[in-house]
């Protein structure tokens, strides 16, 4: 298993892949996702909603999604191209 999955280089004109989507309208800023993310991918600046700060560290483990009390987080499965690239890149890991 690779230690991390590439956040997603732009493939054929598509925007870079973001591993975690946060619905800011539903997020109440409780900090649960920030505290329990094993890779410190998420942050919440004072007075703001949760944000993805380090997409490159995300392993898409899904913990933030199942622990979000506001049902505001979705972890996006890796695109086939991005996953192959990440696995290729993980050969030296």
């Amino acid at each position: 298993m690779p230690g991390s999955v590439e956040a997603g280089p732009a493939v054929e004109g598509r925007p870079p892949e973001v591993p975690v989507e946060i619905n800011a309208k539903w997020c109440k800023g409780c900090d649960i996702c920030v505290a329990f993310c094993p890779k410190e991918v998420l942050v919440r600046p004072e007075g703001e909603k949760a944000q993805v700060a380090h997409p490159e560290k995300c392993t898409r483990c899904g913990l933030c999604e199942i622990m979000c009390p506001d049902l505001a987080i979705v972890v996006i499965p890796a695109r086939k191209g991005a996953r192959a690239q990440a696995q290729g890149g993980a050969g030296d890991a």
């Binding site: 109440k28 900090d31 506001d70």
Partner: peptide
Amino acid sequence: ITHYLRTSKMPHIWCAGCGHGMVLG
């Protein structure tokens, strides 16, 4: 998860950090 939600009623009424949303999930 939105397939099972009345999304027009969201966000829910529970306080920030309330575990009820986690149980509902």
